[in-house]
Every structure is written in C-alpha cells, then in structure tokens.
Nucleic acid binder design. Structure first.
Lengths: 229, 229
DNA sequence: TCGCTGCGTGACCGCATGGTCACATTTGTG
DNA sequence: CACAAATGTGACCATGCGGTCACGCAGCGA
C-alpha cells in the first residue's frame, strides 16, 4: 500500500532513534553530558522521558552513540579530504570543512565536547582509541604537509591541537537558528585556522561576515550581546 | 612570636580557600562542573567533603569563583598586552600568552570551559557580561590590527572565536605533570594560533617540540597514546 | 588543668534524576 | 470488526550528591 512512499515500522523506528540522537547531541553540547537530564532531551522532542527508553538502552548509550557518530563523521570527512586534496594542507582543509558541515547536518551541532569521565569501561576505551587514531591521522597529514611544502615547519602535535581547538570551539558559539549556513561557518573558520599552518599564507581571506545582512533576533539562552552568531 | 614568619589564622584561611579553588578548577575542567562532585574536590585535597563548607558557601559559589578568577586573569593579561605590545597583533600575543601562563600558575589549569547552564541568576548575568566584554576587547584589537597593518583583513568575530578556541582547548590536552613548562606551552600554542592572523606570517616557527627529551611516564587517566603532553 | 575557639569528620537528610512498570491508546492486519 | 503488536504515559523506585549537624579534637591563653 502507498507504494512504499510511507516508511515502514522499522524505518520509522530508525528515524526516531536518529531524532533522539540529534536532540541529545544538541543538549549535551550545550549543557555537558552530565548537566543534561534525559527529561531535557525528552522535552526538546515533545515526548515523555519514558518514551526514550523504547529506542535507547540508557543515558550512557546515548552519550556513546553521539560520540561514535561524531568520530565516524570526522573519519569519513578526513578520508574524503585525503582523496580529493591536492596537497596535505588542502586535505586537512577539506577534511575539517566537511566534518563541520556534516556534523551540523547530521547532529545539528558542530562538535561534541566530552568530559573526561563521561564514559566508562570498555566502551570508553574504544572511543578514546578511535579519537586518538583520528588525531594521529591529522598529525601525519601535518608531517606530510611539511614534507610536500604546503605547511610551515612546525610541531605537528601542537598544530593539530590548535586546529581541533578552533573546530571544536565552534559548538560554543554557533547557533543553527542564525543567519549563517553551516557551509559558510565551516569555510570561514577552517580558512582562518588553517592559515596558521600555510607555508604560503594568502594575503587576504575570502570570507567577510559584514557582507551578510543580519536581522535582529531575540537573544538565545544567555547570549545577550553577540557572543554567538 | 616567630616574627610573622608563620602566617596567622586569617592568612591560613585565605590560603586554604585558594587551595580549594585550585583543586576545584582542576576537577571542573576535567569532568565538567556538573560531572564533578564536591567529594571529588575534597578527595583531591585529602579532606572530607564537609570541610570544604568552612571556606565555601556552596558548589555554585565555587564554580562562580573559578570563572571569575579566570576572567580576571584574562582581563589583566590583555591589559598588560595592550600596554606592552608594539602593534595590535603583538598585544594579542602578549595578552594570550600571559593569560595561559598565569592561569596555570594560579589555578593549575589552562582554562575553564563552562557549560551553558552551570550558573544561574544574577551571578550568571554578571559573569557572561564580563566574558562578552573580554571578547569585545579582543575583537577591537583585531580591528586595530587590521588598521595598523599587523593583521590581515578578516572578520574579527571569526578570528577571535578561532583564537579563543585554540587557547581554551589547551585545557583538554595540557597536563601540568608533563615535561613542558607552562611558558613553553603558552608560547607554542599562541605563536601558531596567532600566525593565522599575521599580515606577514613568519616562514618558520620558533617552537619545536622534538628538541625536548620526554622520558616515558605512566599514562594519565584515560590518555593512553599521547593525546596529552 | 580548665575552658574556649576553631577545625575536620562521619552520619545523616532531602531532592533531583536515571531507570522501570502497568496501563491506556494507537496502528496495522486478516 | 477483532485482535495483536507497538507506542507513549504518569506514577513510581532507587541512588547519588549537595548540603547540614552534632561531635571529637587540637591549640592556646590564664
């Protein structure tokens, strides 16, 4: 019936779980995984707390799933960057830009910042290994870039920390309700952050915020001034 | 007696409160202000939870005090930068470097990352205003730098977000037990981060990590590989 | 030696929040 | 329509943690 135009039961379940993930990711990044209650997540979806447990085992699984998804996206984006980039710096740029864009599209949030004790046990180990592996890939790319002449001689570890800091921090100020598209934000922040490594830094940046009209809107949460975009 | 070589009662109280602040800042940055329990703080000081309440009104006051101190340090450092810097970019560099160094010296931790709902009410307002004011000062410096030719034409808002992200992220990977002095870390990270804005970026960076012998040491918390320094 | 003051502690209280359950309601199917 | 499966809910339980309190103890002046 309906010729498959309507998703069936299992597809709907998957969609609901995904919606929960999105909502949770949003709430977790705003309030921290500890500061957020499952009721917060439920309310933001317009359902009761108990309903969540049909699709999620417990809060820990939620946190883990968010983190896993973020890391998978980061990995995938970097793989794409390695395939398409002309040199190592270019690969990093593509990898980071796509990471941000994809994250916002998938989870509605630019990055998950995890507290040290948010996960426990074997799952935690696995996640940390994944994260470390990602950082290692990034460092290798920096070394490659120094070799191929696209990146200045620098300490890869510090350079990567600096890049990831800039990228992850986006979650503190980016608001999807704002006037900037995810693409614009991603390009702007990656462009300036990677300029720090560029062996031949461009004398001007392409992204100018002032060009964009920004109608006044009600302040979001505590953000009175214009701390956020 | 003892000719004032021994601090008196009130001085000791002040020292104890300061010690609590340091311990709390450490625990808060690691676990998030919500994820950290007052017992965690107490244990890290080798006292009981109840003892803390002789020196601190409640957990909220602790969070607030940490945040206030961090902001005061940032403000002070930036003021010094504005006084000593030769141009706007130089002022930013001095301001950020001193901020990191001072933070580590005072709180034993590079930066406090606050969740959105960690504070409430009037205190929150006040803190957020202070933080916004700091960001405004930074943005003004970026504009000054564009004017005086030390900084490339760029969007101040994005540039400052990028800088602050790099700086705050230090708290995720820096470990005071490591072999790097606070000064080395601060110089290294600020040098590369501000290179992103530099109108005439140096062709090489001064800081090279490899130069420093790093004896093996037990992994800290979950940090197996060398995610941290 | 006798208080007096201040400090630190274990035991305790109350509440918020993670998690469960029985039940009502809806949805899909023959 | 009948029935089963799935879904969502309010009420409830259990526990971890912020916060309090009565007590023991050390230091100190007379």
């Amino acid at each position: 019936m309906w010729n498959d135009a309507i998703p069936d039961r299992t597809a709907q379940q998957a969609m609901k779980r995904k919606a929960i993930l999105r909502a949770a990711a949003m709430v977790f990044t705003r309030q921290g995984s500890h500061g957020a209650t499952l009721e917060d997540v439920a309310i933001s979806l317009g359902v009761s707390k108990a309903a969540l447990y049909r699709y999620v085992l417990n809060k820990n699984e939620l946190v883990l799933a968010c983190q896993e998804e973020a890391l998978d996206i980061a990995d995938k984006a970097l793989t794409q960057g390695e395939k398409e980039g002309l040199n190592a710096l270019d690969k990093i740029r593509i990898g980071l830009t796509n990471y941000l864009i994809e994250m916002i599209a998938e989870l509605g949030v630019p990055a998950l910042i995890l507290e040290d004790n948010a996960l426990h046990g074997a799952e935690a180990e696995q996640t940390y290994e994944k994260r470390d592996a990602y950082e290692m890939r990034m460092r290798r790319l920096v070394r490659d870039g120094i070799a191929d002449g696209s990146i200045v001689a620098t300490e890869p570890k510090i350079a990567v920390f600096m890049l990831l800091g800039s990228i992850h921090w986006v979650s503190k100020w980016y608001r999807p309700e704002g006037n900037w598209t995810p693409e614009m934000v991603a390009h702007a922040i990656v462009e300036i952050a990677t300029r720090a490594l560029d062996a031949r830094p461009a004398p001007t940046l392409t992204t100018r915020l002032e060009d964009i009209a920004r109608p006044a809107q009600a302040p979001l949460s505590y953000l009175k001034e214009d701390h956020a975009l």
